[in-house]
Design a binder for these strands. Structure first.
Length: 875
DNA sequence: CGAGACACGC
DNA sequence: GACGTACGTGTCTCGA
């Protein structure tokens, strides 16, 4: 049912004024009452979520009541000086917020409330009257409720036809008759002198109305009382007239006038002037926004309908009836550290009821998750983590017919647009057009979240299916959650003795180099500060400035490399940088992340970070452990098989991206190179230079390697010239030559860019999509970037698809065959496992066969598998 | 606390 | 002629 909220503006403003300490805007205007009023308004929106709203104010001191009785409200003091200007201020603010403000000359706000309530209240429209004045209780009907402000500004009491008798001992119809007898000192309504609340209540309870009292006057016991009643009969009837709120004013309003037209752009500047900095977003959240500045406020939607915690049941409600064969939405809060967190509390919504419970009864929760037909959540990995122990919880991801049971809405959103930085509720509610999350207590928010989740399920699934991403979700991404969690929980062992030893040695070396640098520079400075280093190199020593950054001289490795011959100091700086990086990021960084219980390192694999579909790894990042330099490999050598395991195994795809390029482009020469098992860089050099492969020099090969690399990334002659230290013209020649030898590659690249221009997106072999909004930008930079992305993403993304598919398959085979050996890491084109000797050969075969056959391309996929006592030697 | 510079991986 | 290899994460400095 729709709701009309009518606010007694004068009453609320008074309340707010006295409830809050004095506040002033920067210009000195008192603002506390206005601020308090708005705070109450937000609260009301949260509680009532009205469809229509009007605010009524008193107008003029002279009303029909003062004509009847000149002393009406005669004893009321003037409003405080600081309050008076706030009456017009609040009206301006409300009007700016698109809220209908009503004043009626000669009448009080109450009369407007009464008349609106009478006019509009019906079985189709519930009226909610907001006031601090109990007189308004007379307006209560079956269609109109009164919310009375109590103490402060946040406490409200809803009075209805049903509960009024209980609360006050009488109903709405008695209010005016009681008042007629007892009077009201605040309004200076006389009543019958000597009759107070008690007597008035008793009389009306007995005789119903004022008329009834006088008709039965003889039956009234107490001589004095009878006398007073008779003496003041006229005054009593006058008092009743004064107390009676008018409900028959003809007001020129239609319901449509009470639809709020909220425009942030109009309200925000006003609030800024008043100094209400935090109010705008809160208002936007509860009132929604008329799209005029969705970007500015983050595109919030209308807030959810009222979130009541009254129906929040505990775990006793989790009977099979609650979840069996039902869709449930789940949101949980966690305790502890990854990947061994536990559930602090969990909210489960089955579309009708919400249960909140803790994680103590894990079996029950597993039953719920496995008994439901569909589990809707954004926390699949976290739930599998917290409900399992050293392995992911045994929760079925698929129904028997193979369709996903777990609907991870965040993961779906990632597939729909992988370029975003987060997939939280704020974004999801907007993306799938459901009301945004209510704010308030943790309970209110979590309840609001499970409700939102439930509502998102349908639009999310439909959108994913419409965008042809469902298959990707079910065949790759959903099962991957399990695989990733297995690896996270497994963790990888680090040789701590060796770690300590290496740390000591590297730190000593760092000290030494640092001292040498200070000696050579003739002063001490912070070598880690590019700014200070720049001063030494380019000002003190006068070395040529090669490159500048936004903030000063560039001192990066490329620059220092060019300055190598200028001073022996440069070499030392580079050396310092290398060691410093290894010590801080890797040695010290890894040491603090060794788990106390497992003595292993447990990274987090993130599935929803990269724009291309790759994984990322963090805390720590185990995908960028050094490998290129001798010193760096000392870090890598720290990673070893843990207790109960004998060796580390690495399986890496050889040239997977170039192979994918060969397949996708269909280029004959490239396909032939791979089919014949050629060294692709040597082959390319020979092709491009038009000579025999045996005659290719190592320099020529490395140039070709750089070209191959560049091709994958969307080459430019400038980039290549910089990489190879050749002129741009020469680089361009190389590229042209490359494309002339691999014509279908050129064609493929052009096609990708063309397709992107036409459709605004590109896809991988498995349908993973990436939108390229800048592809038709007039800005050269942005457009060029998008074009390179169009060339690179299908290749890199397809590689990501393939290895994800492979690792899922490897994991399920390891489980199926009951191997002890297990997956530890994925590094883009490499899987790392720890194995026991008895299984080693079988594992190696399993890896090679599984990974190579996971997809059939026009070129062979080749996987190199090795094992060794540490990760550095596994090659 | 965020931006910038830098460096590590694929 | 612009811009100038894709994709990440972590550490450190520096200034608000």
């Amino acid at each position: 049912m729709k709701k009309l909220m009518i606010i007694d503006g004068s009453s609320l403003l008074f309340r707010a004024f006295f409830a809050l300490p004095p506040l002033r805007s920067a210009l000195g205007t008192p603002t506390n009452a206005v601020y308090g009023f708005l705070t109450m308004l937000i609260k009301l929106y949260e509680e009532i979520n009205p469809d229509y709203i009007a605010v009524a104010f008193d107008k003029g001191r002279q009303t029909f009541r003062t004509e009847l009785y000149s002393d009406y409200k005669g004893n009321r003091p003037d409003a405080p000086e600081d309050l008076r200007p706030q009456f017009s201020l609040i009206q301006d603010v409300l009007k700016a917020m698109g809220i209908c403000v009503i004043e009626e000359e000669g009448f009080e706000g109450d009369d407007v409330l009464g008349s609106l309530s009478k006019t509009f209240g019906s079985s189709d429209l519930a009226v909610q009257i907001i006031t601090g004045d109990r007189d308004n209780l007379q307006l209560i009907t079956e269609h109109s409720h009164v919310f009375l402000t109590k103490k402060g500004i946040s406490d409200m009491l809803e009075v209805t036809l049903e509960n009024m008798e209980e609360l006050y001992g009488y109903g709405p119809d008695k209010v005016i008759d009681i008042k007629a007898l007892m009077g009201d000192s605040s309004d200076n309504i006389p009543g019958v002198p000597g009759v107070g609340e008690k007597t008035a209540l008793k009389l009306i309870a007995e005789y119903d109305t004022l008329e009834g009292v006088y008709e039965n006057i003889d039956a009234i016991s107490g001589k004095k009382l009878k006398e007073r009643l008779l003496e003041n009969k006229e005054l009593a009837f006058l008092s009743r007239q004064l107390a009676t709120i008018k409900t028959d004013l003809q007001l020129p309003y239609e319901l449509e006038n009470f639809v709020q037209q909220f425009h942030v752009s109009e309200v925000k500047p006003m609030f800024e002037t008043l100094g209400f900095t935090k109010l705008t977003p809160r208002l936007v959240q509860v009132m929604g926004n008329d799209s005029d500045s969705a970007d500015e406020i983050g595109g919030l939607f209308a807030v959810q309908e009222e979130v009541s915690l009254d129906d929040l049941a505990d775990s006793t409600a989790l009977t099979p009836d609650f979840y069996t064969e039902k869709k449930v939405a789940i949101h949980a809060l966690f305790d502890g550290k990854t990947p061994f967190r536990t559930i602090d509390s969990i909210y489960i919504f089955n579309g009708d009821f919400i249960v909140k419970t803790d994680g103590t009864n894990g079996t029950l929760l597993l039953d719920v998750l496995n008994g439901a037909s569909t589990v809707i959540t954004t926390q699949t990995k976290d739930l599998l983590e917290a409900l399992g122990t050293d392995k992911p919880a045994a929760i079925r991801l698929f129904q028997d017919n193979g369709t996903p049971r777990i609907h991870d809405i965040s993961l779906m959103a990632y597939l729909l647009d992988p370029t975003r930085t987060n997939y939280g509720y704020l974004y999801l509610t907007e993306l799938f057009s459901v009301p945004s999350i209510a704010t308030g207590s943790v309970d209110v928010e979590c309840v609001s979240m499970v409700k939102a989740l439930f509502a998102m399920n349908k639009p999310a699934v439909e959108t994913v299916q419409r965008e042809e991403l469902w298959r990707l979700y079910e065949t790759i991404e959903l099962p991957l959650i399990h695989t990733l969690l297995v690896m996270e929980k497994n963790g990888i062992y680090i040789n701590t003795d060796k770690l300590e030893d290496t740390t000591v040695r590297f730190k000593a070396e760092l000290e030494e180099v640092q001292q040498e640098i200070y000696d050579m520079a003739g002063e001490t400075f912070n070598i880690n500060s590019p700014k200070q280093l720049g001063v030494i190199l380019f000002e003190k020593m006068g070395l040529p400035v090669i490159k500048k950054t936004k903030t000063g001289y560039s001192t990066d490795a490329e620059v220092l490399d060019m300055l190598r011959n200028e001073s022996p100091l440069i070499e030392k700086i580079l050396h310092f940088r290398t060691i410093s990086k290894l010590v801080s990021t890797y040695l010290d960084g890894l040491a603090v992340l060794i788990n106390d219980r497992t003595h292993r390192i447990h990274t987090t694999f993130n599935q929803m970070v990269t724009a291309t579909g790759r994984l990322s790894s963090s805390d720590p990042n185990l995908q960028n452990i050094p490998v290129r330099t001798e010193k760096g490999r000392e870090i890598r050598a720290l990673f070893s098989p843990g207790e109960g395991f004998d060796t580390l195994v690495s399986a890496d795809y050889s040239q997977i991206e170039l192979r994918i390029l060969a397949h996708l482009s269909g280029d004959e020469a490239l396909i032939r190179a791979f089919t014949e098992g050629k060294d692709i860089h040597r082959f390319t050099a020979a092709e491009v230079l038009g000579k025999a492969q045996e005659e290719v020099t190592s320099e020529e090969r490395s140039h070709a390697k750089a070209i191959n690399f560049g091709i994958i990334y969307g080459i430019s002659d400038f980039g290549l010239s910089r990489d190879l230290g050749i002129t741009r013209g020469e680089a361009k020649n190389y590229i042209d030559l490359y494309f002339s030898r691999y014509p279908r590659v050129k064609e493929y690249m052009d096609n990708m860019v063309k397709e992107a221009h036409e459709t605004g997106k590109v896809r991988t072999m498995f349908g993973r999509v990436r939108e390229l909004p800048d592809i038709n930008s007039r800005n050269f930079n942005r457009r060029s970037f998008a074009e390179r992305t169009a060339m690179n993403t299908p290749i890199q993304g397809t590689a990501a698809d393939i290895i994800k598919l492979a690792m899922n398959k490897v994991e399920s085979l390891l489980e199926e065959k009951g191997f002890t050996s297990r997956l530890l890491l994925q590094v883009h084109d490499e899987l790392v496992l720890e194995a026991v000797n008895e299984e080693l050969e079988a594992i190696k075969v399993l890896l090679k066969e599984t990974m190579e056959s996971v997809v059939t391309l026009d070129v062979p996929l080749i996987v190199d598998v090795h094992d060794a006592e540490n990760w550095a030697l596994v090659k």
